[in-house]
Amino acid sequence: MGKKVLAVHLPAFHEIPENNKWWGDGFTEWTNVKSGKPLFKGHYQPMKPKDDYYYDLSNVNDLKYQAEIAKKYNVYGFIFYHYWFGNGRMLFEKPAEMLLNNPDIDINYCFSWANQTWITTWHGRDPETLLEQLYPGEQDWKQHFDYWEKFFKDERYIKVDNKPMLYIYNPSEIPNYDKMIEYFDMRCKEAGFAGIYTVEYIYPRNPKLFSKKSDAVYEFEPRYSLFFDISKFNLLKRFIIKKLKMTDYQSFDKIWSYILNRKRTYDSKTIISGAFSGWDNSARKGKESMIVKGKTVPKFKKYFEKFYTSDRENISEEFCVINAWNEWSEGAYLEPDDKDGFGYLEAIKEVVDKYND
């Protein structure tokens, strides 16, 4: 039995009052996507969904369609970004809640708590705090778990050994992190589970395993490779490019070579390996963006097959993760576009089918 392919899911493709206030009426993630402009000859911008399908994730039928094509092409489940800022303050909770309330939608899922303060960083605006990430303490842990519990009890919610799987984006920023995880673990056991299964993101902001309480780590690509695996000279070069507000060009093939040849371990923790389909956040950041050049469907299929069958030490035999299902503004998506159609999804399906016959 091969691994289950999970894809990071961005729920920001629908209007919310906060975005209308911050960015103008009618703003959704598609607004960013449509603003993309080519920076060089042959640069695929703006990126466009196939058949101009600019879906609305406040519409249950659009969510159903995502689930249908994910299932068809062997994407086992979505990792929904979950925005909880403390004291019950959330954003973009509607798609996951619609999924919960529509048990006929056939897709597995779990949460990634994207715990970070929101600031203005798009389109050249000076940094300004939009919504601060707060950590009020134990009462907030209770309120947070009370919200999660109904999702955890959903049979579609992904579990490992009867433990609900929870990704945490910035564990090192959370005060009393270990006590919080112990509390969630206790509450899970009270709810009839074997505990909670926490997965730490590993990327530049979290450069190493933060807590022994975490069950696994997730290598968040391509940011992981472009911080930990490149030479010190190239890391310095990237730093200078950023300071000069220039475009940071990187190689699709080189990043994949880092992913496929990695040997790093984390105190014997399970490693949920990360992959990516592409990267180009120029729709958000213009000339101050990072663009990974050279991606094609045949290359992705070749690299993904090696990734999928990796026998690296401590690697999870059950899951692997692709960044992302629908990060269109960052050029990291599997959904069909007007350039490659269903090519990336077809590549995943062919590889998974090959090793699950």
Rank of each mutant, 00 (worst) to 15 (best):
G36S: 03
L134K: 15
L166Y: 02
I240F: 14
K150Q: 12
S214F: 06
A332V: 03
D161Y: 00
D340K: 02
F92K: 05
E93W: 09
Y218E: 07
R125H: 13
L6H: 06
K245I: 04
N356C: 14
L345V: 00
M98I: 15
E288W: 03
K142I: 15
F193T: 08
H144K: 06
V352C: 10
D126M: 13
P95Y: 03
P222V: 07
Y224V: 06
Y224L: 05
P207V: 00
T247A: 03
E93I: 12
S251P: 11
Y201I: 06
E182T: 13
N32G: 06
I322C: 06
G341A: 07
F151T: 01
D104E: 15
S257N: 13
T31K: 06
W113C: 07
G124N: 03
N170M: 10
K263M: 14
A324T: 02
V199N: 07
L209S: 11
H9Q: 09
G124C: 01
K285R: 12
F319L: 01
Q139P: 00
T117W: 05
K163M: 04
K339T: 04
I181R: 13
P11H: 08
G294P: 10
P49A: 05
E29M: 06
H14E: 06
W30D: 11
G195R: 08
E335S: 10
I230K: 11
D357P: 12
P164K: 00
A275K: 01
S112F: 01
P103N: 12
T28H: 03
R312S: 13
Y169P: 07
F193Y: 07
G343C: 05
I107T: 01
T121D: 12
N108G: 08
M98V: 13
K254A: 11
N108L: 00
K301G: 10
L345K: 05
D253M: 04
S329W: 02
V60M: 12
W325F: 04
I255T: 14
M246E: 02
F319G: 01
K163R: 14
F304M: 13
K242A: 14
I272W: 05
R89S: 13
P38A: 07
L91R: 08
Y183I: 11
E155L: 08
L99W: 11
V292N: 06
L91S: 09
Y55D: 11
K48V: 05
T120H: 15
N314T: 02
N281Y: 05
E190T: 01
Y157Q: 09
I240T: 05
C110K: 00
F152R: 09
N261P: 12
L226E: 09
L100P: 09
F85M: 08
I105V: 14
N176G: 11
Y177L: 15
I322Q: 05
N59Q: 05
S251R: 08
P95R: 11
Y249A: 09
H43N: 11
K94I: 00
P103T: 10
D178F: 00
G343L: 02
G2Q: 12
